[in-house]
Structure formats: structure tokens, C-alpha cells
């Protein structure tokens, strides 16, 4: 069963028409994206490298210097505050507190020269008015909650003494230590083996159920998406090309990129012929196509695709896709068999 959702609750984070541009770049790296996430909900942002999913996360966390990544438009409302306009000092108060993040490679995000207990306690001390002993107790509780065996003695371990899966558990403990309202996870299981990945996903789901945290999960793995998502945003080259509930995205994919992505993943069932492929690759920022950015790779592209960017059209309850020709089967006929 998926974690409890509160579909009618107000969004805890609401991103509206966010556009970002790196200094000196000819095009926006993120170009007008909007999404909401509600308490207890899991939103997966899917796409290939270079589509802007990590940049989105970093900008929400205030981890991209504004001198480098300029906000061209949009808002990111977290409660009644716009994350994009907050000062560095205010952001630092929120980060690790009410909004936190876990990264792909836990080894590089943990400080190698501090004991993990101290690192977790530090996050608690930074944001809460507690004593050192309380913070340490909280650290131990958190290690227990992320199911690290012999938590009390593990507090004194250094990151290098832990396996990859254990390190990711420590990162999760640290991220959740202050009961954040939003947790952003950027490919948290990509570096892990499949059995360890299953453990971590399971843990994230369970903790989310316990705490009601809203989760934004960034991943390229459609298997992980199917496993954990309530809602999905498919990103391509800085645009959201399709979004909707997870069942809808898999059962009624509308955008050619979503369709291409799904049909190029090998299946774990019996083999069914050659894989479909999407020609070419994600465009570089200095070579962004005009109009719909998927045009050069799209097998359905027509002349007007390169001229006018499609908007996200409604295709069902909370299901939107940005394609001039969706649904495809109403426009393109299958050629004779």
C-alpha cells in the first residue's frame, strides 16, 4: 500500500512558473516549470541527465548562488514564503530543518572526519534550542528509526566505517532529524545495489508514512517511480513535458518523450524484441531547440513543433502533457502491418 495521502490538503510546497538561467547562458536551464507537493505525498521528477531535475532541487534548497543561477521568473511558495526570494540567512535556517535533502552519493555528503553521531546532533543543535545531550539522544533515536543495528555504538563510527547502504541511512537520519515538511531526495538509491536499494526505498516509504513528510524524489529509474510515486513530473530539457498521477502516466502516457522513455527501458519479463530507441541525445544548453525542445529527437515532429512551444494541456483529471499532437493516435495512423 502507498503511504497515506491527503489529496485535498493544501500544498506544502508550490512551484509556479520557475525559470532559471545560468549566467551567460543563451537559454534557460529551467524554463517555466510548475508543480505542487502535498503533505504525505510523493512526487517523482523523472528525466535523463541534463534535463534540469537536479538544478530544480538545488535551487529550491537555496544551494545555487543567485549570482550564478538567475531566477528569471516564478515563485516557490513554502507556506507563505517564497523560497526564491529568501535571504541566505533565512534559507540556512530552513535548510535541514523544515526542508531537507538527501543526495546520490552519501560518502561525499558526509564529513569524513566527524563521527556520524556528532554530524546528526549538529543538525539538531543548529535548528533547535536543545542541550548537547538532548541532540545526541535525538541522533541515537534517529539511527534507530532508520534501522541501523546497534545504533548507540554506531554513533561513534566515522563514515568510512559504514557500507554504502548504511551511509545512505545516516543521510536519511540526518535529513529527517528535525521533522521536515519537505524532503527532496536526488537519486538516493542510484549508487546502491538492488537489494540495498529495496531496503532504502522501503525505509523511505515507511518513514514518510510515520511523519507525513512531503517527498520530492528525483530519479531516472522508472521502476523506482512505479514503486514509490503518487504523482510524476516528466522533465525534458528544462521543461515539464507531462505530469499526472503515477497510474495515469504509465497507463495513458501522452508525450512522445514519456512514451519513448518507457519503451526504451528493457523489461524484466520475457524478451519482446529489440528495444525502441530515442534518436540522438539531450541537447546542450548552448544548442537548445526552439519551440518544443524535444522536436529534433521526436519521431512525430511536424513543422510547427520547432516554431511554437506547446503548453501543458489537460488530458484528464490532473493529467497534463505538452504536445501539439497528443493524443498521438488521433493524428497519426499506424502504417500497414
Amino acid at each position: 500500500m502507498r503511504p497515506e495521502r491527503e489529496p485535498h490538503a493544501a500544498p506544502v510546497l508550490s512551484v509556479d512558473n520557475l525559470a532559471l538561467r545560468f549566467k551567460g547562458a543563451p537559454a534557460n536551464i529551467i524554463d517555466g516549470i510548475s508543480f505542487d507537493v502535498r503533505p504525505g505525498e510523493t512526487l517523482c521528477i523523472v528525466g535523463e541527465s541534463g534535463c534540469g531535475k537536479s538544478v530544480t532541487a538545488l535551487s529550491l534548497m537555496g544551494l545555487l548562488p543567485r549570482s550564478v543561477a538567475q531566477v528569471m521568473s516564478g515563485r516557490a511558495m513554502f507556506g507563505d514564503r517564497d523560497l526564491l526570494t529568501l535571504s541566505q540567512r533565512t534559507m540556512a535556517d530552513l535548510r535541514g530543518n523544515t526542508i531537507s535533502m538527501i543526495f546520490q552519493e552519501p560518502m561525499t555528503s558526509l564529513n569524513p572526519s566527524y563521527r556520524i553521531g556528532d554530524q546528526i546532533a549538529e543538525v539538531v543543535l543548529r535548528h533547535r534550542n536543545v542541550t548537547g545531550a538532548d541532540a545526541r539522544r535525538r541522533a541515537r533515536d534517529m539511527l534507530e528509526r532508520v534501522r541501523i543495528p546497534a545504533a548507540a555504538s554506531r554513533l561513534n563510527d566515522y563514515p568510512h566505517e559504514l557500507s554504502g547502504g548504511m551511509r545512505q541511512r545516516v543521510m536519511i537520519a540526518m535529513a529527517l532529524a528535525n521533522d521536515p515538511a519537505v524532503l527532496i531526495a536526488d537519486e538516493p538509491t542510484t549508487a546502491l545495489d538492488v537489494t540495498i536499494q529495496a531496503q532504502i526505498i522501503d525505509l523511505i516509504e515507511e518513514l514518510q508514512k510515520e511523519t507525513g513528510t512531503a517527498l520530492i524524489m528525483i530519479t531516472h529509474d522508472l521502476g523506482v517511480v512505479a514503486e514509490i510515486a503518487d504523482r510524476v513530473c516528466v522533465m525534458y530539457a528544462g521543461h515539464i513535458v507531462e505530469d499526472g498521477p503515477v497510474e495515469t502516466i504509465f497507463d495513458d502516457p501522452q508525450h512522445p518523450y514519456t512514451i519513448g522513455l518507457m519503451s526504451s527501458v528493457p523489461s524484466v519479463g520475457p524478451r519482446s524484441g529489440r528495444l525502441a530507441t530515442i534518436a540522438g541525445m539531450v541537447p546542450a544548453i548552448d544548442d537548445m531547440p526552439t519551440g518544443c525542445r524535444f522536436t529534433p529527437r521526436c519521431p512525430f515532429a511536424q513543422e510547427n513543433c520547432a516554431l511554437s512551444p506547446p503548453v501543458l494541456d489537460q488530458h484528464g483529471p490532473s493529467h497534463r502533457a505538452a504536445c501539439h499532437y497528443a493524443p498521438l493516435e488521433t493524428v497519426f495512423a499506424e502504417t500497414g502491418s
Binding site: F250, D251, D252, P253, P256, I259, G260, M262, S263, S267, V268, G269, A276, T277, I278, A279, G280, P299, F300, P327, L328, E329, F332, E334, T335
Partner: peptide, 26 residues
């Protein structure tokens, strides 16, 4: 096993496959 796809998803996958093969060779 991967459960079967919906009919409409299958149809779109087939369309994609057909048209992407007609594209300039990948």
C-alpha cells in the same frame, strides 16, 4: 513479470516504434 500495459499505452508504443524506425537511422 511486468504486468501487461494498457491497450492505449501499447498502441502508442507501437506508433513510436514504427515512426522512430522511419526516422533517419539512429
Amino acid at each position: 513479470r511486468e504486468p501487461p500495459r494498457s491497450t492505449i499505452a501499447e498502441r502508442r508504443f507501437a506508433l513510436f516504434r514504427q515512426r522512430s524506425q522511419r526516422q533517419e537511422p539512429v
